[in-house]
Simulated scan of single mutants.
Amino acid sequence: MIRLDDRLLEQLGLDALPASHRRALLMAIYQELEIRVGVRLAAQMDGRQLNEFEGFVAVGDKASALAFLEREFPLYKRVVEEEFDRLRTEIGTQLSDIQALSQVYGDVHVVVTPLPDPWKASAKAAGQ
C-alpha cells in the first residue's frame, strides 16, 4: 500500500523539512503520481473505455471508476506501484536540491492550495 505521509519523507531523507514544506511536497507527489498513472492508463484505453471512465469522473462516481479499473485493467495497481517507485527514485536523485530550496525559503510559510478535485468538480457541475 502506498502511503503519502511523513513516513515517506523520512524514508527519503526529507523529514527535516519544515511542516509546511513537507505538506507541499506530499501534495506535489500525489498530484504528479495521479498524472503519471492517468497518462499510462489512458494510453491503454480504447474509445469506449475512455468514454465510460470519463463518464464516471463527470458525475463524481469514484466507486464505479474504481470498479471499472479493476474490471478493465486488473493490473492497474501495478502501474501505480511502478510510477510511485519511479517518482521515489527521481526524488532521491534530487534530495540536495529539495533541501537547498527548503533552506532558501525556510522562513516562508508555504500555503498549499490543492488543485481542484476532478471528482468533486464534476459532481458539482452535474448538479449533484
Rank of each mutant, 00 (worst) to 15 (best):
8 L>Q: 01
124 K>I: 12
103 Q>H: 14
68 F>I: 00
25 L>T: 00
127 G>P: 10
83 E>L: 06
23 R>D: 10
99 Q>W: 05
72 E>K: 12
26 L>S: 02
87 L>T: 04
23 R>E: 11
111 V>I: 15
12 L>E: 04
62 K>M: 04
105 Y>M: 11
113 T>V: 15
56 F>I: 06
122 S>E: 11
117 D>V: 07
127 G>N: 13
26 L>Q: 03
112 V>R: 05
89 T>L: 15
92 G>A: 09
30 Y>G: 12
34 E>A: 14
22 R>K: 13
90 E>N: 09
35 I>N: 03
80 V>H: 03
50 L>S: 12
15 D>L: 11
106 G>T: 10
82 E>W: 04
57 V>K: 14
8 L>H: 01
11 Q>C: 10
55 G>Y: 03
117 D>G: 06
31 Q>R: 06
44 Q>V: 03
20 S>A: 13
54 E>I: 13
75 L>H: 14
82 E>G: 06
10 E>D: 09
44 Q>F: 05
118 P>N: 08
111 V>Y: 11
78 R>W: 11
36 R>F: 07
10 E>R: 15
58 A>H: 08
16 A>Q: 11
10 E>K: 15
102 S>N: 01
61 D>H: 14
50 L>F: 09
105 Y>E: 01
21 H>D: 04
108 V>T: 12
86 R>F: 12
39 V>W: 04
2 I>N: 01
6 D>N: 13
106 G>K: 11
